[in-house]
């Protein structure tokens, strides 16, 4: 039986997951900053345990169009990790990466933008997982990033279903990146399998 109970917010495990989220998001911000070659500030990430009903609301409603970038995890830790930003923020990130002024564009993405977004997902996802890996000494390998642009509710159903196997709540890490011209709200969702949670806690001596 797994030691994890995500419904118990007071538990040490929950604090550890929060801290992993904080460190991971910090590393991811640094990677983002290097990639776009500007100073990026990060606000302290908000880590929340949310019921499935509230999950879509925090990102602005179930029907809001967002970009979800998902990687599969293998190695010592199985599961998936997702990075999610809303459509306008994603356009702005691509603009900065391409050396353009953020345009607050809301149009559909072209091929180049989509592959730029995949690369962004790859880099910040990798940075996030690296920190988890060095913290726990566990080997984590990631797949290529998969991208989907759709309603937030639909994209979030993928991680929500995985959390649904464990309990009735999902762990969401919201990080806000800021640079001089704009802010980008991004969400990280780390979804290890139940056995992998135990490996993570075991590696940390819990």
């Amino acid at each position: 039986m797994s030691k994890l109970d995500l419904n118990d917010v007071g538990s040490v495990q929950f604090d550890v997951l929060k801290e992993i989220g904080n460190i991971g998001a910090g590393n991811a911000t640094t990677a983002l900053s290097q990639m776009i070659n500007t100073k990026v500030d990060m606000q302290v990430p908000k880590v929340e345990l949310l019921g499935f009903q509230e999950l879509p609301d925090i990102v602005g409603g179930a029907e809001k169009i967002v970009v979800g970038i998902l990687v599969n995890l293998e190695g010592d830790v199985d599961g998936m990790m997702m990075f999610m930003v809303d459509k306008v923020c994603a356009h702005n990130l691509v603009d900065i990466l391409m050396g353009k002024k953020p345009s607050n564009d809301d149009s559909d993405f072209d091929e180049i933008s989509l592959s730029a977004l995949q690369e962004i997902g790859n880099i910040i996802g990798g940075a996030y997982l690296n920190s988890l890996s060095s913290l726990t000494n566990l080997v984590i390998t990631e797949s290529i990033p998969y991208l989907s642009v759709d309603m937030a509710g639909a994209i979030l159903s993928v991680p929500a279903i995985e959390f649904g196997k464990i309990g009735d709540k999902a762990l969401l890490i919201q990080s806000r990146f800021l640079d001089d011209d704009m802010s980008v709200d991004g969400f990280f969702i780390l979804i290890p399998t139940l056995e992998s949670y135990d490996k993570i806690f075991g590696a940390l001596g819990l």
């Binding site: 499935f52 009903q53 999950l55 879509p56 409603g61 179930a62 029907e63 759709d150 309603m151 937030a152 509710g153 639909a154 994209i155 979030l156 159903s157 993928v158 929500a160 279903i161 649904g164 009735d168």
Partner: peptide, 23 residues
């Protein structure tokens, strides 16, 4: 109707659920 939720009603009321993905 939210995620992991169910509701019933009778006409003239109607039911909706937003952003179904793999659910």
């Amino acid at each position: 109707v939210g995620m992991a939720d169910l509701k019933v009603c009778k006409a003239p009321d109607n039911l909706t659920t937003l952003g179904l993905g793999s659910c």
